[in-house]
Write a protein that binds this DNA or RNA. Structure first.
Ligand code: ZN
Ligand code: ZN
Ligand code: ZN
Ligand code: ZN
Lengths: 133, 133
DNA sequence: TGGTGAATGTTATGACATAACATGTTATTG
DNA sequence: CAATAACATGTTATGTCATAACATTCACCA
C-alpha cells in the first residue's frame, strides 16, 4: 500500500518537520510560507514533497480541509483504515482507527462488489479541551 | 439538523435539477457551464444555491472530489450518518448508511468527549460494473 | 566518463471558493 | 398605499488550492 521510505530528501525533510512541529493541519501554501527562509519559492516544491511523504505514509491529507498533518503513528507503518477527529476551534487532529468500522465498511464493499482503494473518515466538531473552556 | 425546505427558488431548482439529471458528481463550475443558457453568469449564483440545497438536505458535498451530488433519498429527510462509495472510473456514487458504523464513531466521540458536528465517510474505488467490464 | 533516473527550480496556468457591494423581489405592517 | 425588512439575485474582483510544462541539477552506476 505505502511505499517504504528510504531516506528523505532535503525538501521532504523540511516539509515533514514543518508539519510535525505544527499544532494542527497546514495547507500547502502555509507550509510554503514557513519555508521561504529555507529557500522554498514555489508551491510545487511543497506539493512534490507532500506527494512523496503521503506515499511513504508519513503524513495524511485531510480532504475536508484541503490540508495536511504529520502521521501520529509514523512507526506503525501499516495502519489500516484511519479516521480523523478534527476540532474546528483549536485545529487539533486526533488520528485513530477502529476495527469494527473497518470491517463493517469492508463488508459493505464486498456485498456490493465494490473494490475500495482509499477511504476517508473525518469527524469535524469540538474537542474536549475546547468544550471545557 | 437540516432546515425544512419551503419551496425552492428558480436558481435553486435549476441547480438541483442539474445535479439530479447528472450521472455523477458535478463541480460548481461544471454546473455553472450547464446553466449558462438559463442565465447563469457567475460562480456565486451556483454556490449560493448549493449552500441552500445543502441546508435543506437535498444535496451532498463530496469532500474528496470538491463536487456535489443530489441526495439519493431526498425524502427520508433525516438520514443520520451517510457514507459514499465513489467509483473512480465511471463516477457513480452510492449513498448508504450503516447503523453500526454510526454507533461506533459516536462511541469514540463520547469516550473522547468530542462533540461531532459533521462526519464525512467517502470510499473511493471501482464499482461492480466497472470491475466486470 | 557519460548516461540514466530522480529531484529540484521556475513560470505560467487551471480549478475551487468567497468578499464586497449594488439591485431587485416579496411579504409585512403602520 | 408607502415604508420597511428579509431575502434572493447580479456582478466584479479577489483569494485559495493544485498542476502543466520545461529547464536544470544531482546521485548513482555501467
Ligand atoms: Zn497515520
Ligand atoms: Zn479544540
Ligand atoms: Zn442523502
Ligand atoms: Zn464504475
Amino acid at each position: 500500500m505505502t511505499t517504504a521510505s528510504p531516506e528523505l530528501t532535503r525538501n521532504q525533510s523540511l516539509v515533514l518537520e514543518t508539519l510535525a512541529k505544527a499544532e494542527g493541519p497546514l495547507s500547502a501554501y502555509t507550509i510554503l510560507d514557513k519555508l521561504r527562509d529555507d529557500g522554498f519559492r514555489a508551491p510545487l516544491q511543497v506539493y512534490r514533497a507532500l506527494d512523496k511523504l503521503l506515499g511513504f505514509g508519513l503524513i495524511h491529507r485531510l480532504e475536508s480541509l484541503n490540508a495536511f498533518v504529520a502521521c501520529a503513528h509514523p512507526h506503525c507503518h501499516a495502519h489500516g483504515l484511519i479516521a480523523f477527529a478534527i476540532c474546528e476551534k483549536c485545529g487539533q487532529v486526533d488520528e485513530f482507527s477502529d476495527e469494527v468500522v473497518q470491517k463493517r465498511l469492508a463488508g459493505w464493499a464486498e456485498d456490493h462488489r465494490f473494490k475500495a482503494e482509499k477511504t476517508t473518515i473525518e469527524i469535524r466538531g469540538r474537542c474536549a479541551n475546547c468544550l471545557a473552556a
